[in-house]
Design a protein around this nucleic acid. Sequence first.
DNA 1: CCAATGCTTTGCCTTCTGGCTAACTATCAA
DNA 2: TTGATAGTTAGCCAGAAGGCAAAGCATTGG
Lengths: 109, 109
Amino acid sequence: MHAGTEQLDGIFQALADPTRRAILTRLGGGPTAVGELAKPFDMALPSFMKHIAALEQSGLIRTAKSGRVRTCTLEPSTFALVDGWLNAQRRIWTGRTDRLEAFVTKDSK
Amino acid sequence: MHAGTEQLDGIFQALADPTRRAILTRLGGGPTAVGELAKPFDMALPSFMKHIAALEQSGLIRTAKSGRVRTCTLEPSTFALVDGWLNAQRRIWTGRTDRLEAFVTKDSK
DNA sequence: CCAATGCTTTGCCTTCTGGCTAACTATCAA
DNA sequence: TTGATAGTTAGCCAGAAGGCAAAGCATTGG
């Protein structure tokens, strides 16, 4: 459940685009077909598909085709990787803060 | 304290690079001079400075120059914006899950 | 079977990224 | 004051990113 640095590259890259974040938000409401997802965006389909591809490659969504319709689904476990990295960072600074606090407090014991 | 979509672009973009994430991790141990920070990386200084600039522009770090030394410091509040976005997303799906659960359960009332 | 629908593939274009070298500026130390 | 140190500025480059239009290929509805 620990994210490789390479996977984080892809995930953060995928998140670094407003269109893609909007797609994720939309998918929060449940699985949706590509065509349906694309409607709100003023963008040619091939361009839109690149965003879908980026999201899928990063693992943030899964997609499956049934007949001629491709449906996209959120993959929450990948979000957890981001969360994990964030928490790991925080553990580093709070660790330091704790040591700092210990240092500051140590003459009162 | 709510992140504009534009700021998130920059933040995620900044995080989408292993060098920059490594810098952040290093800064978790406390403020550090650019030269010191740069040592572990096999990269020319101007290239390295671009990473510093990206991190500073995104708000993930602050930097200040004293004499000829520029020192970098983590800016934890910016990490909170990422966390905020992540939680907002989760609120969306868990909201849906709750409603789904309510639906599934509603005939038992 | 034919047309419409829903993606896919191809190929092209512009801008942004991340790297470099070389030359420059501004301290600090002797 | 002169040399070493710590960044900075300028300019170049290759490759990735994000957009497009046009043509292609399977379903599906009639």
